[in-house]
């Protein structure tokens, strides 16, 4: 906990944006380890993947476009401090009557929470409670979450695709040196790593039922393998493998998989996202439903993250050429 505080304060003080980003990455990792201590393994997994990898990556690629140092501050903004202190005081006031930390008797653990713990295995047959709540009981929230990612992907595309006219095709690939061509060790190691990462992603994808993991984490890992490939071999090489247009369709496709599961249940006269129509035995149906839904998540997440990354580095290209 104290480390967290230290890092957060360091972020406030630092003027070098690159250092700030690194500190933020450390902060995320610390959070992830804190989540493990707090028994939230799934969340820790996600935080590590998202906070420490994806967000750092995005921030860094933005920084390479916008410059690394910020302007020194003019004076201490008292106004902000006052707002923050009032809000903080209100929060502390609120905690005074909060149920104590870690107590099992708190109302939060009595009402709905205990229902999931006691009943969910019998009803869904999924060992990982987080997965069963995520994909089944609150499947609609997860659908919403998927749409959020999809929206972000579409939004980023809409914002950054304007300079689409930058000439990719006419550039002679032999002249344009692939980034990091000289780093032979990196190239070899990453060539070995990438298949392993992809395999691991698939493992995480299908292992979500029994251990921590699931579609979201798998999607992030899958995308990070491709991102690694892009960084080592250049954007052009990556675009040769998967083009932006395909990624766009894939990310839409993932959302459609999820919703078609829902629509399937609608068509058979049950409520939206009711998995019981997918198979005869209820537990099997839940399994099938969760699996399909996780597939949808995985596909959308992976393709959207790649899409966002490609858009960002596409900007880098166009700026590099302009200079």
């Amino acid at each position: 906990m104290c480390f967290l505080l230290l890092t957060a304060f360091a972020i406030t003080r630092a003027h070098d944006l690159l250092a700030t980003v690194m500190l933020l990455s450390i902060y995320s990792l610390l959070c992830a380890s804190f989540f493990v201590v707090m028994d939230a393994v799934d969340v820790a997994f996600t935080e590590a993947a998202v906070g420490a990898v994806v967000s750092t990556l995005l921030l860094l690629s933005t920084l390479s476009l916008t410059g690394r140092f910020e302007k020194p501050q003019r004076e201490k903004p008292l106004f902000g401090l006052i707002i923050v202190l009032t809000t903080g005081a209100l929060l502390i006031y609120g905690t005074l009557q909060m149920p104590p930390f870690g107590s099992a008797a708190a109302p939060i653990h009595q009402h709905v929470g205990s229902y999931y713990i006691n009943q969910s295995y019998a009803e869904t047959g999924i060992v990982n409670l987080v997965t069963s709540v995520l994909a089944s009981y609150r499947g609609y929230d997860t659908f919403g979450e998927l749409v959020v990612i999809f929206t972000a992907g579409v939004g980023v595309l809409a914002l950054l695709s304007s300079q689409k006219s930058y000439p990719i095709a006419p550039i002679d690939k032999t002249i344009l040196p692939a980034p990091m061509k000289q780093h032979h060790i990196l190239r070899v190691v990453s060539k070995m790593l990438i298949p392993l990462i992809l395999l691991f992603a698939l493992y995480v994808q299908f292992h979500g039922h029994t251990g921590p993991g699931g579609g979201f984490q798998a999607g992030v890992i899958f995308a990070s393998a491709i991102v690694l490939y892009t960084m080592i071999f250049g954007l052009q090489a990556a675009l040769d493998v998967i083009s932006v247009a395909w990624l766009k369709l894939f990310s839409a496709f993932g959302v459609l998989i999820y919703s078609s599961v829902g629509l399937l249940s609608l068509l058979s006269g049950e409520n939206f996202l009711d998995y019981s129509v997918l198979a005869q035995a209820p537990i099997e149906a839940q399994h099938l439903g969760t699996l399909a839904v996780e597939m949808g998540i995985g596909i959308t997440v992976a393709s959207t993250i790649m899409l966002i990354f490609f858009s960002f580095s596409g900007q880098m290209h166009s700026i590099g050429e302009a200079q």
Binding site: A40, T46, V50, I117, T151, F216
Partner: peptide, 18 residues
């Protein structure tokens, strides 16, 4: 531990990265 907040936060993390 209570799984429900974990699920909520998984969703919230995704929202925040988006």
């Amino acid at each position: 531990s209570n799984p429900l907040p974990h699920v909520l936060i998984l969703t919230a993390i995704v929202v925040s990265i988006s």
